[in-house]
């Protein structure tokens, strides 16, 4: 004698109901465990070994981290990366916000088209952008030098304090110009991307607040400080943190534009490039892991500090 049909169906439904969530998350969990968690754990143990590829390993304890603290190349990489992150955050984000404010104005004609124009560089890959700007930065015959030379030469005749940009200015072969070149390239690529976040945030700000502020006699700048900034704060904090993390992970642009040598005097050496060089050029995966973990911890500290400074914790508690 079999169970009544209704009871059987009910049991099947309950089983499905219980199992389905696990089934759905299973692919991600399996992939994450295999390609996420396992490498993380493995890299932590690896950071305590001197290695020559995965086959030859000698346990060295914390020696990799001690060496890292005295390593002049690592210091250069940290300084370069911090400089890039500084410029990225303090130039890129205000520019992105400014563009978003401009392109959110209803009186601006063709703003939809302009949004596409400013966002479109982000549709290109970093490798493509790197190659493109490598050509633009070429000395003597490159577009940038010719444009700047054509602009500054006549200006210099009238205003002698303006220096002439020489045609053979080597943006990617002069240690002093490498970082500005990288920042310029990343600005072109990412300002439009961050602008989209700010545009979305601006649309969510309550328009009644602007009307109230206008009634109270607040001018445009006061409205920006008192209404706009608090209104977009959650998004601004998110953009700030992701931009900082992204800047500290910089690899493709300098790798494409400067090659594996990271430019003259290592002027374009970033932390992730150094990690790559140590791991895959020098073959010391242990030391590369130590670099990776130091970067991860550094990013954690910086992100927590940013969240604290910008009041993200406070708003979360509220």
């Amino acid at each position: 004698m079999s169970a009544p049909r209704g009871i059987r169906a009910d049991g099947w439904f309950r089983l499905q109901h219980r199992a389905a969530p696990y089934l759905f998350v299973a692919p991600f969990v399996l992939l994450f465990l295999t390609f996420g968690l396992w490498p993380i754990v493995k890299s932590l143990t690896l950071s305590m070994y001197a290695t020559s590829g995965p086959k030859d390993q000698v346990f060295v304890g914390a020696a990799n981290f001690r060496f890292l603290l005295r390593d002049p190349d690592f210091r250069i990489a940290v300084a370069n990366t911090a400089l890039f992150a500084f410029w990225s955050v303090f130039v890129q984000l205000p520019l992105a916000l400014g563009l978003a404010l401009l392109l959110s104005r209803r009186w601006l004609r063709g703003r939809e088209f302009l949004r596409l124009v400013f966002f479109s560089p982000n549709l290109l890959g970093q490798v493509f952008v790197g190659v493109l700007f490598s050509v633009l930065f070429v000395p003597q015959y490159g577009l940038l030098n010719n444009a700047l030379h054509g602009l500054t030469e006549p200006l210099h005749r009238w205003l002698s304090f303006i220096p002439v940009v020489e045609l053979d200015t080597k943006w990617l072969a002069n240690p002093a110009l490498v970082m500005p070149a990288l920042v310029l390239t990343s600005l072109w690529m990412y300002v439009g991307f961050n602008m989209i976040y700010f545009l979305a945030a601006l649309q969510a700000v309550d328009q009644d607040l602007y009307e109230a502020a206008t009634v109270d006699g607040a001018n445009g700048f006061q409205q920006f400080l008192a209404v706009t900034l608090p209104g977009i704060r959650p998004v601004a904090v998110f953009v700030l943190i992701t931009s900082t993390i992204g800047s500290f992970q910089l690899f493709e642009l300098p790798y494409i534009m400067l090659g594996n040598g990271s430019g003259p005097n290592k002027a374009g050496l970033t932390i992730v490039m150094y990690l790559y060089q140590m791991g895959f050029v020098t073959g010391d995966l242990g030391y590369a892991s130590a670099v990776g973990w130091t970067l991860a911890l550094g990013l954690l500290v910086i992100s927590l500090a940013q969240m604290r400074i910008t009041g993200a914790f406070r708003s979360g508690a509220e």
Partner: peptide, 17 residues
């Protein structure tokens, strides 16, 4: 030496300086 790439980088650094 296996450190040839690093050596080339170091000589280039010395040259730039």
């Amino acid at each position: 030496s296996p450190f040839i790439s690093t050596a080339k980088g170091k000589l280039s650094e010395a040259l730039v300086a």
